[in-house]
Every structure is written in C-alpha cells, then in structure tokens.
C-alpha cells in the first residue's frame, strides 16, 4: 500500500497530509515565539527602575534604527505578497509568472537578511559609556583608532579589558540626545560630536550586545531566531523555484500544494515580524 492523501485532500478533513503537518508545525511555532514574547514582557515589566544607565527608564527605548526597521518590514511584506502571487500564478497555470514571483520573494528574503546583518554589525560597535563625572553617553566607539566589528568576538571591549590592555582613552561618536521616552530631542544636533573619554573616568562600558542588558539579549535572540526562519524558508522557496520545479510537469497538484505549504510558513515568518517590529523597535 502507498501512503494516501499525499496531495489529494482526505474527504472528511478536507486537507492533504502536508497541510495538516504545516499547521501543526505552525502551532508549535506559535508556542515557541509565544514563549519568547512572554519572556520579553516578563523581563521588561519586572526590570528594576534605573537599570538602563542612559535614562530613568528601567528599559531602554529607541535604541534601534527605526527607518531601517521600517524598510525591512516593507521588504518582508513585499515578499509575503509575492509568495502568494506565485501560488496564484500556478493556479492560473502561468509557470513563468510563478518563477518570477518566487525569485523576487527569495531576493527579498536575502535583502532582509543583509539589512539585518548591517544592523547587527552596527550594534556590536555601539556602546553605552557611564562616566564617573557626568551623564552617560552612547555612540560608536573607537579604541586605538579602530571600530570593533561583530564577526570578531575578541573585538568586544569592556572596562576590565581597557584597563588590562592599558588603553588610556577611547573616542565616542556621541549619539543625538534623547528625552526620557527615548525619542531624539528635536533641538539636538544630528551631526555626531566626537568626544574623547579617559579610561579612568569610565564607570561602566558596554556594547549593545546581549551581555549589556536583557533588552539586547531578547532583541538578538528573537531576531536571530526569526532570521534563521527567514533563511530556512528562503532556501526551501529557492529550491521550489528551480530544482524542485520539475514536479510541475509530473504532478502539478502536488507542486501547487508544496508552494502553498511553503507559502504558509513564509507568511508565518512575516506574521512574527509584524509583532516583532513594533515590540522591539518602537515600544
């Protein structure tokens, strides 16, 4: 006996196997991301006041690059539309349209990931510096004339390391000033002012990385996990667009089903981002 309902729908459920499978999988994904969002909320609401040095708020706000985040949201939404268009093109028997839409989807996915890694890189060289004498400052730092880079973990600086390596001073390209809500103050000068801070004057130094604050830990964890989903989804969709498209000739219905299932996963990835974007960028 062969396995039934691999592409035809079972009459009493009205679904083929893969569709049941993907929805079950998505249900478990809801629990996975749900747990992460729950963790985020719990950590945020129970964070002690004054925990983030820059503001009186317990939780930092407005540290992420909103224009880039908005653009990335648009990229992901576009890819979500193109993937559903790819599916619709197959339904209308237009294979070439399908392939074009699919290629756009995959390109969008990689654009998203590229932009995301640019953001990551930016955060790894962005520091918060609490001085003994004044208000804390944030900005990109230069140590010994070099910017730290994210692919190099040994490039990360802490106060202990500055002291150990006998670095006398660091240079900070100071960010524009923010109000207590994390908004950039309207009257502040948007050009970066370079300030030199002596090591002796530093009380705390931390990059915008997981070790510095739970906010970054949550941010990096959820976006990285989301990024892995984007990558996985993109690879599968790319496979469907090219080598896997042979199936269109042998078994068109099964191929349409595959695109539908792949599309469902892709939309779910988009859904996660729809919540993730306001939660980590804006709130």
């Amino acid at each position: 006996m062969e396995i039934p309902y691999t592409y035809k729908a079972r009459p009493d459920t009205g679904l083929y196997n893969a569709k049941v499978g993907i929805w079950l999988f998505l249900a478990s994904e809801i629990m996975l991301f749900g747990a992460l969002f729950s963790a985020y909320i719990l950590l945020r609401v129970s964070a002690p006041v004054g925990f983030w040095p820059e503001t009186a708020l317990a939780w930092p706000r407005g540290l992420l690059n909103i224009p880039i985040g908005t653009f990335n949201t648009a990229v992901l939404i576009t890819s979500s539309v193109t993937v559903v268009m790819a599916w619709a093109s197959l339904q209308m028997n237009k294979f070439n349209h399908f392939r074009i839409y699919m290629v756009i989807t995959v390109l969008c996915a990689f654009a998203f990931l590229g932009i995301k890694s640019f953001e990551y890189n930016d955060k790894f060289s962005h520091y918060v510096v609490q001085t003994k004498s004044g208000k804390p400052v944030t900005g990109h730092i230069e140590v010994n004339g070099k910017h730290p880079r994210f692919w190099n973990f040994s490039d990360q600086w802490t106060l202990a390391r500055l002291t150990a390596e006998n670095v006398k001073e660091i240079s900070v390209a100071v960010d524009p000033e923010r109000d207590e809500h994390g908004h950039v103050k309207s009257h502040s000068n948007h050009a970066h002012e370079n300030r030199t801070i002596a090591t002796d004057d530093i009380q705390f130094l931390g990059s915008y990385t997981p070790a510095t604050h739970p906010f970054f830990a949550v941010y990096f964890l959820i976006t990285a996990l989301h990024g892995l989903h984007v990558l996985g989804g993109a690879l599968v969709l790319a496979y469907f667009a090219f080598p896997g498209a042979k199936m269109w000739k042998d078994n068109p219905q099964q191929f349409i089903n595959r695109i539908e299932v792949g599309g469902l996963f892709w939309h779910f990835v988009d859904l996660v981002w729809i919540f993730l974007f306001p939660v980590v960028y804006l709130l």
Partner: peptide, 13 residues
C-alpha cells in the same frame, strides 16, 4: 507539540 517549544526557547536563552 505545544509544551516543548517553550522549553526550547528557554534552553536557547
């Protein structure tokens, strides 16, 4: 299906 993912999240954390 529904109880394991939160532990997976916690494990990664």
């Amino acid at each position: 299906l529904l109880a394991f993912p939160p532990l997976e999240a916690a494990g990664i954390m």
